[in-house]
């Protein structure tokens, strides 16, 4: 496992205009620390592009190719092929998009790039809604959450669908390497990035990256919440490698789901019986996995 002492002091991402306490920025900064200068980054429309790539606030110190919302994986494909014909296959091509850009509008392109077996690293930073446009629900918005398109009203109460399981979608492609991880676990996360880089072929990392503005939480709690998601068993840390799905962090004494839910404004409306229902689902999932 990676040691923090060994990680470079070189900062390839600084001076972004992101909100204070942004989980997405943490995810990108950690990834670039592992991948280093010999990396080309692709960012689509979204928070990271809006806060790191607008002139004159140029916050990214590796080549960055920005692209349209559905096109992160396909832009990655073009770069991989272009760098190959230019004899620069040693450069890591890194695509980074949010949950909407990955699991919704970018899913077809991601499926294509993965299926074609191209050599790249892709990170989906999941803040569980379309945060750059003000917090609309995505297919990664969890059950029970308030978003601006699942407002709590008399007829409809909240997001009523569970999250799309990105890791298992990737597993169904028999991808060489994929991981579900969290910014709260930097060593595990950065280890996944390192593995992804070393993988010959496509490697995708799904990382939980809380959004204080969208989740209704204090800016200082970003990492703590991501950790709670893991410790309550809501967010399973797992890998798919060599054809096998593996849980990478077994939580012995899972904290109550309630602790995670009650800490966030986006669940403020949720009655206790719903939280109990969620607890039951989490318990059943882990029982089935053990």
């Amino acid at each position: 496992m990676i040691k923090l002492q060994d990680i470079t002091e070189e900062e390839l991402l600084y001076g972004s205009l992101a909100c204070a306490g942004c989980g997405g920025i943490i995810a990108l900064r950690m990834a670039l620390k592992v991948l280093g200068k010999n990396t080309v980054l692709v960012l689509p429309a979204g928070c990271l592009m809006a806060t790191c790539g607008f002139f004159p606030q140029m916050a990214v110190n590796v080549p960055l190719v920005s692209t349209a919302f559905p096109s992160t994986p396909s832009t990655v494909s073009g770069l991989v092929a272009g760098l190959k014909v230019k004899g620069k296959e040693d450069i890591t091509v890194l695509g980074v998009a949010g949950d909407g850009g990955t699991a919704d509008i970018g899913l077809q392109a991601l499926s294509g790039s993965v299926e074609r077996g191209e050599n790249f690293v892709y990170i989906c930073y999941d803040n569980e809604a379309y945060m750059n446009t003000g917090g609309q629900r995505s297919s990664e918005t969890p059950y029970g959450a308030w978003t601006t398109t699942t407002p709590v009203g008399r007829n409809k109460m909240w997001e009523d669908k569970p999250k799309k399981d990105l890791l298992r979608i990737l597993a169904a492609h028999n991808i060489p390497y994929a991981a579900r991880t969290s910014i709260s676990h930097p060593r595990e996360y950065m280890d996944s990035v390192r593995k992804a880089k070393e993988t010959k072929g496509p490697a995708v990392i799904h990382v939980l990256a809380p959004c204080p503005s969208g989740w209704g939480t204090d800016t200082s709690k970003t990492v703590e919440l991501a950790r709670l998601a893991v410790e309550t068993g809501i967010w399973e840390m797992a890998e798919y490698e060599n054809g096998k799905y593996k849980v990478t962090k077994i939580i012995k004494n899972r904290k109550p789901v309630k602790e995670y839910i009650k800490a966030q404004g986006r669940y403020r409306h949720l009655p206790d019986e719903e939280i109990e229902k969620m607890q039951k689902q989490v318990d059943e999932y882990w029982k089935a996995m053990s």
Binding site: V42, V65, T67, A68, P70, S71, P73, S74, T75, V76, S77, G78, L79, A81, G82, L83, V85, K86, K88, Q108, A109, G112
Partner: peptide, 13 residues
């Protein structure tokens, strides 16, 4: 859509 995205990116190299 991907064809044109890939062309755009490849041309960037």
């Amino acid at each position: 859509h991907t064809a044109m995205s890939a062309c755009y990116a490849a041309s960037c190299t």
